[in-house]
Write a protein that binds this DNA or RNA. Structure first.
Lengths: 192, 192
DNA sequence: AAAAAGAGAATGAACATTCATTTTTATATA
DNA sequence: TATATAAAAATGAATGTTCATTCTCTTTTT
């Protein structure tokens, strides 16, 4: 009997093509025929790996988000001091967005449009729990202002996302100093 | 001879329907048939007011952006002190986004996707010149850190946009204090 | 040889745009 | 003031295209 042996390479190629085409044209303006062509695959083959177009995009979102958060929290340890931990995570996030700006742009587009369905969005949020926990500890220890997580997020992560995307669009060229300065602004905005 | 007398009401209804439907479904997932229905108009009528679907969305973007910046700068005077002027403009922006969050969400979606064509995007940016000029003066007078406009924008306006959208999505409830606090964080991030 | 993977060519629905008519409007004339 | 008329405004019903999805056949794998 034959074994289930779908090529992980084909799947990866489909995900990669989806990211690139959606970045350039948006979800509804990227026909599966183009995704298939870019991945060197027949349109019908997409349906061996994904249920339909929506599923392809949902799964792409979740996978990219997972990759992102795995990178962000990789070197963090639960017993770190709040400020140290925050600085570490913030810089890992900056680093990821810097190195993988295609993925970062894709996530930004997903987060600002009705492209992704609600369940997938929820899954994406869950992966961020580590940072929320750290903030919770910081608030309890009186090191971080008693603000809601959304506000902390708005002051620290959101400006960073915008800067990376501006760079990707060619509007600015970010240096190490920019990133360092941006981190300081972020921490100053939230520290008690 | 009959006068050119296209109903401004119909045009406004079309713009309004476009904003609402694009907010909920995205550009490519809002058929003109639905826009027409929501505006109580025949699909064919859209073509009396706009060249095609892309033109409808471009014009909607430019109109909303114009309304937004007109409001933002309405009470500003060129001879104001930098800090005073910035505080005023920032608060007007907050106020607009608060009161017209449908429009604010629409702009956010346009700014984060390839939905709008490049020329229209350029027009939208131009309308922001007043704030850029004020920042330029602030930098020259040594009141604002010598950062690029994009970075100033990232620290001051972008977090605000995110907060308003989070509120619209039901994730938080913003109070006067939040807004005041957010202004202080913004100013502290950029003041020399 | 049998089961899965893959392909290219249909299929059918959705949708932007156009077409052929009808309705409204504004004004010039009675 | 009422009426006729010509131009614009508006419409609902085509039209043709694009595209997600499916079908049937071929190739690969074990």
């Amino acid at each position: 009997m034959a074994k289930l042996q779908k090529s992980i390479d084909k799947r990866n190629a489909l995900i990669k093509a989806t990211i690139e085409l959606v970045n350039n044209n948006g979800f509804h303006a990227t026909p599966l025929s183009k995704v298939a062509k870019m991945a060197n695959v027949s349109p019908a083959t997409i349906y061996l790996y994904f249920e339909n177009k929506q599923d392809l995009v949902n799964k792409t979102y979740i996978e990219v988000k997972e990759k992102f958060t795995a990178y962000a929290f990789e070197t963090f340890k639960e017993d770190m001091a709040v400020e140290e931990g925050f600085k570490l995570i913030w810089n890992r996030i900056a680093d990821f967005k810097f190195k993988h700006c295609e993925e970062a742009m894709f996530l930004a587009q997903c987060d600002n449009t009705p492209m992704i369905d609600e369940p997938s969005r929820e899954v994406g949020i869950k992966h961020f729990q580590t940072l929320l926990d750290l903030w919770g500890r910081g608030k309890k220890e009186g090191l971080i202002k008693p603000m809601s997580d959304h506000i902390l997020y708005a002051y620290t992560i959101i400006p960073l996302s915008f800067l990376i995307i501006s760079q990707k669009r060619g509007a600015i060229t970010l240096t190490k100093e920019h990133i360092e300065q941006s981190y300081l602004a972020a921490w100053n905005s939230i520290k008690a």
